[in-house]
């Protein structure tokens, strides 16, 4: 054995160390990191007539951003994706925080039953959730209309998923319905970890339940809200399943629900008469990678600032 001890810890010897790390590093490297790097590399190449692809610099990116045939679809998808994300931020986080706060009320009976129930939709397949809501909102079946009539809002009902003006927001809200469990659970856990003394101290100082939440608990769970936001950002900017299940690869009506995931799919695989294009697909994926990377950087920048301030 070649294991050695130093002041800061144990070194088991390189053979043992390699044996522990190699399986994970190898599979992850070969099937995740390498394809990602290769996809980025693909985006700088162009296929040649009957030959190997040729290096083309940034030509694919210029095509994607400037050639109307590509850019119209791309910027439409990017804009729709931003709306998709904005709806999540505006609805999912506040509702999730509110539910977490309700679940954390002291003396609440049935807490774990509520928690299990409210988190349930998050566990379901996005595909299944999409189909379920498609049926519920279907004007053909009329369940949604009937329910709205029952509470006096019948005249507000419309085939939201079918109309160009409302399909995207409706799909975003379906996604929010499904994933609100994530902010709820994570914020709930963060609330449970706040020392009891802190809350008691605020109480003694005369703060009411809402005051305690607003001035003590909420600021302390903001890092968790930040974490949820970046997770939502990453999830939203490579979302695909929901749109594909409900609207198909063409993300209708008239591409009004097209987001980067579905645009990437069509570019790479083709659809109907247009054939797939691996290099342009890789280019779209690279842009998606850069968008996600930018989001992560911004998140880390703010988190780091926070951490420095805490020190």
């Amino acid at each position: 054995m070649t294991r050695t001890r130093t002041r800061d810890g144990v070194h088991p010897g390189w053979i043992t160390l390699t044996a522990f790390l190699a399986p994970a590093a190898l599979i992850y490297g070969v099937f995740s990191v390498y394809p990602l790097a290769r996809t980025i590399a693909f985006s700088f190449y162009r296929p040649q007539e009957g030959g190997a692809a040729q290096f083309a610099g940034l030509a694919n990116f210029v095509t994607l951003f400037a050639d109307p045939y590509w850019s119209e679809g791309f910027f439409n998808a990017l804009w729709n994706n931003l709306i998709f994300f904005a709806v999540h931020m505006a609805v999912q986080n506040p509702v999730g925080i509110a539910l977490a706060a309700l679940l954390a009320v002291p003396g609440l009976k049935g807490r774990s039953l509520y928690r299990t129930t409210l988190f349930l939709p998050t566990m379901l397949s996005v595909v299944i959730v999409g189909f379920i809501w498609q049926l519920v909102l279907s004007p053909l079946w009329g369940v949604g209309e009937e329910l709205m009539t029952a509470v006096g809002l019948g005249s507000w009902f419309a085939p939201w998923l079918g109309e160009e003006s409302s399909a995207l927001v409706t799909l975003s809200l379906i996604s929010v319905w499904q994933f609100v469990g994530i902010p709820m659970l994570l914020v709930h856990v963060a609330l449970l970890n706040i020392p009891r003394d802190l809350i008691d101290a605020a109480r003694v100082d005369g703060a009411g339940a809402f005051g305690v939440f607003r001035h003590v608990q909420l600021p302390l769970v903001m890092p968790t809200v930040g974490l949820v936001s970046i997770l939502t950002f990453i999830g939203n900017f490579n979302a695909f399943d929901l749109i594909y299940a409900v609207k198909g690869a063409l993300a209708g009506p008239n591409f009004s629900t097209d987001i980067l995931g579905t645009y990437f799919y069509r570019t790479f695989f083709g659809y109907q008469l247009q054939s797939g294009n691996a290099e342009m697909g890789a280019t779209v994926a690279t842009v998606m990678f850069l968008i996600i990377l930018a989001g992560v950087m911004i998140y880390l920048f703010f988190m780091q600032k926070r951490m420095l301030r805490a020190i």
Binding site: F31, S32, G281, A285
Partner: peptide, 11 residues
Amino acid sequence: MVPIRLGTVAI
């Protein structure tokens, strides 16, 4: 941080 889906073309 990086979704594995983005490497789909090469996968």
